[in-house]
Computed example of a mutant assay.
Amino acid sequence: MIEDPKHWFEGVPRVLFVHAHPDDETIITGGTLAALAESGQEPLLVTLSRGEQGEAVPGTVADVDPQGLAAHRMTELAGALAALGIDRHVFLGAGPARAEGLPPRIYEDSGMMWGADGRATAAAEADDEALTAAPVMEVLNDLVAAAHDAGAGAIVSYDNGGGYGHPDHVLAHRAARAVAHALELPFWEAVSSADARAESAVEAYDISPWLDRKVAALRAHASQVTVDGDELVHVGGQRQAIDAVERFRRVIA
């Protein structure tokens, strides 16, 4: 059964969404974020990196070195969140998503390469400042700090394969799920429409009333995706439908 996402977390003080890079929040959960924001539930989005190692659509970014791309993607993210109505956002490693007593830090995009099976895998080399090179407990403590500050009542992130396999997505799932377990919070993982087939435990939410906001947010991420009718074209040329239904599965944290 497809339901209204505004009723998903009724009674939950705030939902914490954990995403790896700018644009993931919109592609995967944009409609749900917009619906919860409109209902006054003030979801908190934590973005783990700034997408330094991503590619860029030709002609969209003046400076495509990692730091220039990061700055550009941060600006795009701000535009996307404005379109979705999201006021509460923080990058991991910056207050309030930083463990008390530690100076701020930037977790950089770990990069990726495509494996023979068509899924993403770890890059041949990762920078010392990469998210996946950081001490696991530091990442966990920063995410705990964010959840505590927000008064989170539930956590949402990717499935255990990170969606398409990106190492930062996989780490996001593991960290978010571990924090949910430690804080005894319910944990939901986002599920693709393909993976949702024959899944009786999947909760589906019709986000069509907020689809225009989701599309506007996608357009804000112009260096990463192009909106072509009812499809999304990724920087690598991959096409996918812009989902008007977003699906989640609750798992035991």
Rank of each mutant, 00 (worst) to 15 (best):
Q224F: 09
T226C: 10
I106Y: 06
F91M: 08
A99P: 03
A150T: 13
E25R: 12
R98K: 15
Q41Y: 04
A145C: 06
I252W: 11
M112E: 03
R213E: 01
A146T: 07
T29A: 08
H89Q: 11
A94L: 14
I252V: 15
V170L: 02
D128P: 11
A241M: 09
Y107I: 00
Q53P: 05
R219T: 00
E138M: 15
G30R: 09
V139W: 04
E3T: 00
S110R: 01
D243A: 15
T226S: 10
V233E: 05
T60Q: 13
P186W: 13
R174Y: 07
E3F: 01
Y164Q: 11
S192M: 08
L143Q: 10
L143H: 11
W114F: 13
D109K: 00
G11E: 06
A196G: 12
G165L: 08
G118R: 07
S157E: 12
W210A: 02
A180H: 10
H21E: 03
E42D: 13
P103K: 09
D206H: 04
R98H: 08
G151I: 07
D243M: 05
H169K: 09
A180R: 02
G59E: 10
A82N: 07
A120F: 15
G115M: 06
E246A: 11
S157M: 07
H234L: 12
G118P: 04
L218Y: 01
L77I: 04
G163E: 11
P135N: 08
R88Y: 07
G236M: 14
H7E: 10
V156N: 08
A120N: 14
R239L: 14
E138Y: 02
P66M: 13
D149N: 11
F91K: 05
T26L: 12
L131W: 08
D228L: 08
G161Y: 05
R247D: 03
P186N: 14
V225L: 08
L171F: 02
E129F: 03
Q238D: 13
A80R: 01
G162M: 01
K214N: 07
V90D: 07
K214Y: 02
I27V: 14
R247G: 09
H7Q: 05
H173C: 06
L77S: 06
A134H: 09
A116C: 02
P167Y: 13
G229H: 04
L185H: 12
V170W: 00
P96H: 15
A196Y: 00
A182M: 11
S110T: 12
L69T: 09
T121Q: 09
H166C: 10
A152W: 05
E246W: 07
V179W: 12
P43D: 09
S200I: 08
E199V: 11
A222T: 03
A83D: 02
R174V: 02
R88K: 15
S223G: 01
G153A: 13
A180M: 12
E189T: 05
A222F: 02
V46W: 09
G165D: 06
V15N: 03
G162E: 03
D63Y: 12
E42P: 06
V57L: 06
Y107T: 03
I207T: 02
S49K: 13
A172H: 04
K6E: 11
V57P: 00
R197A: 15
A178G: 04
P13Q: 10
G118C: 02
V12R: 07
L84G: 06
A178L: 14
G59S: 10
W8A: 06
T60M: 14
I155S: 06
L92G: 04
H181I: 04
L211S: 01
G165R: 03
D168L: 15
L77W: 07
